[in-house]
């Protein structure tokens, strides 16, 4: 392409991301979530005092992609580990990055207890309606009738029960200061997701308590779709069941202007 005259940079790769190419499948919105977190930490100038807690699942390798300290928690125990890190080093920004198999299934006890204690940590929760890393099995967030490798005829609610709406559930806890759900399916919603992640880190920086951002995400490989079809599936199937919105915004949090 022709070079332009004097030009301005509209967007470039955030410095908080390392220069590694990710292991995520083409079109997986994990990459968008990583990028948003990196952009926010760059903007807030928090990189040198942030500690991430990686979960088990596809996001287990998050520590390779962020250019700051990371620890790796046993399956589902990221909020417990983040609690320990934050209590020992209260001046650090501590966040967990968890998928739905990790947070909503084996780690449900830890996340509920951490939110109930009002632990001053931030949780980024990726909801893609299945277990991505192990091959697309049914997760607590799998939609009724959704075909997965362990529900080949579709999730039968008579046998497997109903999906869990984590944000709504955690919002009932007094300890939770900021609990919202956002989606990563189009540019507008990605911008809103970034704003929510920024707000969540602001909540932690001001010591206001537990903050969580749930991000609706795609899993093109395990859903058996192209990346573009997966985005449409998220929009038409997941959004009606998991509406985006602010489920808990504490009174002190509502005063934060971003």
């Amino acid at each position: 392409m022709d070079m332009l005259g004097e030009e301005t940079i509209v967007y470039e790769r955030p410095a908080t991301l390392t220069d590694l190419s990710s292991h995520y499948c083409p079109g997986c919105t994990h990459g968008i979530a990583h990028r948003l977190a990196a952009e926010v930490l760059d903007e807030m100038n928090f990189r040198e005092r942030t500690i991430g807690v990686a979960s088990v699942g596809c996001s287990v390798f998050a520590y390779n992609y962020f250019n700051f300290d990371f620890v790796q928690a046993p399956h589902g125990r990221a909020p417990a580990m983040a609690t320990g890190v934050k209590r020992v080093l209260p001046d650090r920004i501590v966040f967990t990055y968890q998928g739905d198999g990790d947070l909503a299934s084996i780690g449900m006890g830890e996340i509920v207890a951490a939110a109930a204690r009002g632990e001053n940590i931030t949780v980024i929760f990726i909801n893609n309606a299945n277990y991505g890393m192990t091959g697309g099995q049914m997760a607590p967030t799998t939609l009724p009738g959704q075909v997965t490798t362990s529900s080949p005829t579709g999730r039968d609610i008579e046998v497997a029960g109903f999906p869990i709406r984590v944000s709504e559930m955690l919002s009932s806890l007094d300890g939770a200061a900021y609990v919202v759900r956002r989606s990563l399916h189009d540019p507008k919603n990605i911008r809103l997701a970034k704003k929510a992640i920024r707000a969540a880190f602001e909540v932690q920086a001001r010591g206001l308590g537990f903050s969580m951002v749930e991000l609706l995400s795609t899993c093109p490989t395990n859903w058996g779709m192209t990346p573009v079809d997966a985005i449409h599936w998220l929009e038409t199937k997941m959004l009606p069941y998991y509406p985006v919105g602010d489920y808990k915004v504490g009174p002190a949090v509502a005063e934060i202007k971003i």
Binding site: M1, E6, T8, Y11
Partner: peptide
Amino acid sequence: ELINAGCTGCGICAIVCPEAAIAVYREI
């Protein structure tokens, strides 16, 4: 890659890119 003239440097491609692979420039 860019296949045609007409890019306005809006940055939407960079916002949706899961790999943070796109840098966007706009003429002043």
